[in-house]
Design a protein around this nucleic acid. Structure first.
Lengths: 195, 195
DNA sequence: GTCCTATGAATGAAAG
DNA sequence: CTTTCATTCATAGGAC
């Protein structure tokens, strides 16, 4: 661990192993924080192009607009839209299937649907989930109150409005979430401490 | 290990001025990046009426309604929503391995998470269950290379994030608004370079 | 332009 | 652990 290294820019060690370790950890801490913040940013920025070219099959949604051939939207769609053909199939299966989409059958359905437009398992899965949930909630719409959707909208508005516009907060609790790293020690008492 | 460090260990210079400068800059770079990312996060989460209003200081369940105190309970949130901080921690723990949430470790995690917002054991348990189940169903999509976060791999990981701009979301304009730092040189040829 | 509706998608919680 | 349910978020498309 001393002068063992020969080739390389540093023919003589100028730091102890311990110091190297500390410094490495300091760098690693910032690296980890940055990585977390970046991924946080990704998740916050809605569902932006997560695919980023890595996923060729599921990367782009572009529907054929089965009902309206007049529309040519080649641009990337963020949301899958079933074609009318697909919708028919889905509705049929929904009715006949006694309401249980079955996890493995999803793939079969997807396969069949993909003959009428691009679709993924996830889309089919979501569709059945939503279909079921929706039809269930449509039933108890006998609410005597004049405005059903008004309450809904208000509630949504309320919830959406809780963006805290408070003043600045110290970033320390953000940057240093846990004591796993032993950050305080490193940053406050490390080599680069202010003394 | 020579006698470089005991308490009060820094009475003798073990690094050259140049090395010190490089290291200082490395740290400074990460610090700057983190600061920018944090402020980016702030602006993103405060500006958008976006989803779960991420409240850095706290907040899980509670929405800051209060527009109409006369109402008994227009909309109470029954559902736990992890803060961004909590999410980061959870993701970290999830990634760092041991795909088994561990029964007792849940409490530890819960304890740590509770420093960043209200949370219960059950929430953490559910989160891990869901997380695992859903990542399983996911198609083999390597959106982010599952890089193990080890101190050794930090350099490589960061280099991937910075230097490699192909196929990855270009954060460069965010991270590096100016070339004042000369980051490439430092990160690629710094003391902690790979070779 | 703003507002509303419909609906795909995400996710916490619970059931099996 | 696997599958399902319930709620919510986000957005496309239409009405005005």
């Amino acid at each position: 661990m001393d002068g063992g290294s020969q080739n390389g820019a540093y023919d003589g060690r100028v730091m102890t192993e311990e110091q190297m370790e500390i410094l490495s950890k300091q760098i690693a801490i910032y690296a980890a924080i940055c990585r977390q913040l970046v991924s946080l940013h990704e998740s916050l920025s809605s569902k932006l192009p997560l695919s980023s070219g890595v996923d060729p099959t599921g990367g782009g949604y572009f529907d054929s607009m089965g009902a309206s051939p007049s529309t040519y939207k080649i641009s990337h769609r963020h949301r899958w839209t079933p074609t009318s053909m697909q919708l028919q199939i889905l509705e049929s299966i929904y009715e006949e299937g006694s309401g249980t989409p079955k996890p493995q059958r999803i793939e079969e359905i997807t396969l069949e649907l993909s003959q009428h437009g691009q679709v993924m398992d996830k889309n089919v899965y979501n569709w059945f989930q939503n279909r079921r949930a929706r039809s269930k909630r449509k039933q108890p719409q006998a609410m005597t109150t004049t405005t059903v959707q008004t309450v809904d909208a208000v509630a949504a508005t309320e919830e959406r409005s809780y963006g805290d516009s408070g003043g600045f907060v110290s970033y320390d609790h953000i940057l240093f979430p846990s004591t796993d790293f032993g950050i305080e020690h490193l940053l406050d008492g490390g080599i680069f401490r202010e003394r």
